[in-house]
């Protein structure tokens, strides 16, 4: 039947920083780009994010973090997803993240990191391309 259902994306705020305007902008942009978007709200542990991803069976998890704890929390989410059998879920991130950290995060399984000033259209088209590619492979 109709196989063109929307991709499901979880936007999550790990850690203690409560600044989620960025996350909300992404939620809104992805909604308008035709995605089904779920938002966790602020102050989530990596464990909560992984379990939410499991229950919602999302195609991708977007992590937003401004506090500087990304080197600890992003890889932890990646690993917990793997432990839950969700190793194929695309993980991307955004926030105030230095260039050298971006390189290291990508090595640790974060597919893409978006810094300040990224256009929301770019993020939406990145996701569509990456997820279309992933579902063709499977």
């Amino acid at each position: 039947m109709d196989n063109k259902n929307a991709y499901r994306i979880l936007i999550a705020k790990p850690g203690l920083d409560g600044h989620d305007r960025g996350a909300k902008v992404i939620v809104r942009a992805l909604r308008d780009a035709g995605f089904e978007v779920i938002y966790t709200g602020i102050r989530q542990t990596a464990e909560m994010i992984a379990r939410t991803a499991l229950q919602e069976d999302v195609d991708a998890v977007g992590l937003s973090l401004l506090s500087g704890a990304h080197m600890t929390l992003f890889p932890r989410v990646v690993n917990l997803l793997k432990e839950n059998g969700l190793g194929d879920v695309l993980v991307f991130g955004g926030g105030i993240i230095p260039e050298e950290d971006m390189i290291e995060l990508k090595k640790q399984g974060v597919a893409e990191v978006f810094g300040p000033g990224t256009s929301t259209t770019d993020i939406a088209s990145y996701l569509t391309t990456a997820l279309d590619g992933a579902s063709k492979q499977a």
Binding site: A6, V27, R28, L30, R31, D32, A33, G34, F35, E36, V37, I38, Y39, T40, G41, Q44, T45, E47, M48, R51, T52, E56
Partner: peptide, 22 residues
């Protein structure tokens, strides 16, 4: 609701129950 214009949706109910996530 799914948007009649874009097919996208913001599924926001979960935020209220996230204390039970684990």
């Amino acid at each position: 609701p799914t948007s009649a214009y874009t097919g996208g949706a913001f599924l926001g109910d979960r935020i209220r129950v996230q204390q039970h996530a684990l």
